[in-house]
Nucleic acid binder design. Structure first.
Lengths: 209, 209
DNA sequence: ATTAAACGGTATCAAAAGATACAAAACAGG
DNA sequence: CCTGTTTTGTATCTTTTGATACCGTTTAAT
């Protein structure tokens, strides 16, 4: 339990001791494995998750295509869930865990309660909404105005930054699922990049130059 | 002032008399004309606008292309940041009035302040976030997964519903700007629709069948 | 009435992306 | 080592979208 406490108080966004207490009392820590689904499209959302460790990939799907909307990372919560849970609505996208992940989960009804009690909770919620919005808009730009080669290169460069490594471990299919296209298209464009000496291709790995 | 009061209390979302009072005291009513810019890129919006009459079109622009993100309509607010576009100045987000519009405006700090006092304010804010998200996600789906003919037809059908008329007054260029493509493409596809008897084209007017 | 601007139709050519199919290489597990 | 799976390379053909250009018609403005 002390372990639990340490984890929760590490969420520095929550300043009020009473809020920390509430998170501890009513929250439940759950563990998930790579590939586990947190929310599905059409499912009612009755809980709110905060990511303690790992991340959740939120994406849309149509037939065999996928498209990433954003990732929920450590210390963050999923605003889509939040908006859905607040009004007891259905989720409009998928949320899936991409690595071993630890979530703090509590019932949706605390949402309204805490909003009236804790300023730092409110700030947290608003900040989350804004962050997601920015990510979404950023993605939008790419999809609407840029062609595939540009989008792929931008994706790779972003990954280099977040992964802190010029060597990225990802398959062509993964990139296709991020950007809403197909593997063949990705392979074709990556090959072109390689010819232009912009990167080096290995199996399951790309080295950006 | 009585006029003002009537307007504000017409915002039925706000149930608490004290909140209505606060809206009146701290809010300022401003009028805008077609074409006026409400927000451009740059920072978080430091003020909070509620649309009393009219609407705001929020869109992105890159070179000579435009793309609508969503509309802020009567009774709605837009608390979002337009910061995303600021960092990679490839495209620019705009909030522009499309018809004579009346806004109730206050300093942004009331956003969180009222959250602690008024449940109906909380509900309103979250509902707004959710609506924006839904619109964004909806648009996303279209752009990523659907081809132009589908997107155009869906746009027209939505307009038929919101306008409450099968006869839509809009130019091909306007449609192009909504969807992020060009006039020629729109004309071509509309012509095809007309051949298929799905609609009838007139100058500045489309009749959906 | 004359001119300018907005709107729409259409043709041609190029580029981008999608669909399909097949094969080789690398890998994982037994 | 053998076998099934995953990953990647690549060729071919089609569809979709974009870019440009030019023209006729309608509407608005002076």
């Amino acid at each position: 339990m002390d372990n639990q406490k340490a984890i929760v108080t590490s969420l520095k966004a929550f300043k009020e001791p009473a809020l920390q207490e509430a998170l501890l009392t009513h929250g439940q820590i759950l563990h998930f494995q790579k590939g586990d689904t947190i929310v599905k499209i059409g499912q009612y959302v009755r809980f709110l998750p905060i990511v303690l460790k790992g991340s959740i990939r939120v994406f849309q799907q149509k037939e065999d295509r996928e498209f990433s909307l954003y990732y929920v990372r450590e210390g963050e919560t999923c605003t889509m869930s939040l908006a859905a849970a607040y009004f007891n609505n259905k989720s409009v996208s998928h949320g899936v865990v991409m690595e071993p992940t630890e979530l703090l989960i509590f019932p949706a009804n605390f949402l309204t309660e805490w909003q009236l009690q804790f300023p730092s909770w409110n700030q947290y919620i608003i900040a989350m909404f804004r962050r997601r919005y920015d990510e979404l808009i950023n993605n939008f730009e790419g999809v609407v105005f840029e062609h595939m080669p540009v989008r792929i290169m931008e994706y790779l460069r972003r990954r280099v930054i977040t992964d802190e490594s010029r060597i990225l471990n990802l398959s062509h299919q993964t990139i296709a699922n991020e950007l809403g296209t197909t593997r063949v298209v990705v392979s074709r464009i990556l090959k072109q990049f390689e010819k232009e000496k912009k990167l080096k291709l290995l199996r399951g790995q790309i080295e950006i130059k």
